[in-house]
Design a protein around this nucleic acid. Sequence first.
DNA 1: ATGAAAGCGCTAACAA
DNA 2: TTGTTAGCGCTTTCAT
Lengths: 334, 334
Amino acid sequence: MTAKKITLAEIAQMAGVSIATVSRVINQNGRFSRETEKRVNEIITKYNYRPNQMARGLRKNRGKVVGIIVPDVTNEFFAKMALEMQNRLLNEDYMAIICNTNESGEIEKAHLSMLKSMLVSGLIYITHESIDTNHTLIVPTIYIDREPLCKSAEDENVFIESENLEGGYQAVKHLVEKGCRRIAAVCLRGQISSHHNRLEGYKKGLKLSGLPVDEDLIYCTQAVSYEDGYDVTDKLLREHPDVEGIFYTADILALGALQYCLKNNIKAPDDIKIIGFDDISACTRSIPPLTTIHQSVDMIAELAVKNLVSMMDGNPVQRSYIKFPISVVVRGST
Amino acid sequence: MTAKKITLAEIAQMAGVSIATVSRVINQNGRFSRETEKRVNEIITKYNYRPNQMARGLRKNRGKVVGIIVPDVTNEFFAKMALEMQNRLLNEDYMAIICNTNESGEIEKAHLSMLKSMLVSGLIYITHESIDTNHTLIVPTIYIDREPLCKSAEDENVFIESENLEGGYQAVKHLVEKGCRRIAAVCLRGQISSHHNRLEGYKKGLKLSGLPVDEDLIYCTQAVSYEDGYDVTDKLLREHPDVEGIFYTADILALGALQYCLKNNIKAPDDIKIIGFDDISACTRSIPPLTTIHQSVDMIAELAVKNLVSMMDGNPVQRSYIKFPISVVVRGST
DNA sequence: ATGAAAGCGCTAACAA
DNA sequence: TTGTTAGCGCTTTCAT
């Protein structure tokens, strides 16, 4: 590998065939004999040849590259998802470029611009508000967790999400089963579809349990952060000391709440029951461990990559909307 | 941006000059007039032109791409570092490809192979054992936190680390000042230089404080994980109930220890004092918050990128070894 | 200060 | 089944 790079032409010469033939063997485009294939492959193996992606990309006008847009890999949920996808794409011989936008439109634009100049073949967006919709590249795209606003141009995109509404519903149902009657919800402010739907599930859960939906009991946070979870819980519990259970639309928020409780000597699950959403690893380490709604990161990643690769191979979109089942993981906080 | 791609030739035609001239303007290679420059730049801006990196890469035999090799972005320390570098590289117009090896030699090899075929211009390795030394690409390389084993070929690489030894020393000094006499250490097993040096600092600290270095008080873990931190603390405290303070060579380990203490009703800092290394954000959220040795991720990232870019520009390595100061952050656990 | 032209390594259309 | 050849968009001599 450290050895000097070898080219198609050199292989062709060594194999005693033309570069076109070698190219065909490499791309399995048929029209070559068994023997030729064998001979060429031997040389390729011997010299550890790998096609120059730049040349290939230039020629085909698209590189073996896909961009993964994430708001912030510092968040474990995104990190896991991105990592999982990268490895899967690697197996398909695609280079995944993980781009952190830091929730900044400027950075997102810069990344998109770079990706474009690298002739990316596909794109995966993971959970966040699209900041600059009309700067989207026209390539096969998978959106995860966030409903694409622009049902743009071709239907060259698919949207994958967990059963967020069902998750919210299950969360409330669990709380009710544990004896809660006054149940509050904490949700991320804004129009992000996943959080919105979880909140809808919460409302549905209340209704189906014969409980009233009290808008006063629904709180919003500015961001998904421990601090926001901590602060909003303080406010919520002051204004509604009678609340028995709280559903948070993200684990990080719920974990912030748990800290607040610990600090203020409010006992979970005795004084208050808390449930989150995502099932990140920190849930197992909080005091008490956090009950939450589990999302299958692995399976979502797998499905996303499978669909994207298929689209990039030129196949038509099969299902443009895929929903993934969730499950309740009961731990100490309820 | 969604608009169809425009090429050098088209710009040249519109500007009424040759493509060579346009190319010179774009690359600021001199030999063009003020007016020409202005005219060309206007068109470039108007059409939002970006050079095709594939073509450019093919021609120059190196892409505007650098690879960042990380064991696992799921770890906040790596994630922060990678993210920071990516943004800085973006400003320099380099696409950063963050590659997770998951501590697997196979995956590292696959990534390296891909990076090679993408003609990367540079490489950054962040903390981990080099798995396959002789598969290294021959490009400017920055090693962070891990001493490169192969002082290979050209001196085309630099090694950046925090003052790990000093950090271990300061940690012990702090513990001593807090009244500890029996001080244990927990370190990652293996030859990773950063952990090794922190342990050396620990020993130095004991000696300079007139305390004996008791090898029985040094414990190793298999990995940097909460679980390992938890388990090793259990073992340590059982075998040496008289220990008053413990230095962990990574925050994650120390945080696992703090959990253990909480679970077993051992009061930190009263019964035992605990100090970590890294200063990840979770330190502020533990019970009690974790005293630790702070590493300047931002500054390391900045320096790494600055040096790498300089090297990729063809400048000779200035300093092949850079050390970064650390500081003690005192929190509740001591 | 500017242009013409030769490739970089590869794919694909066309011939044979 | 195989070879020839024309570019993909760009940089870079070498002329002018």
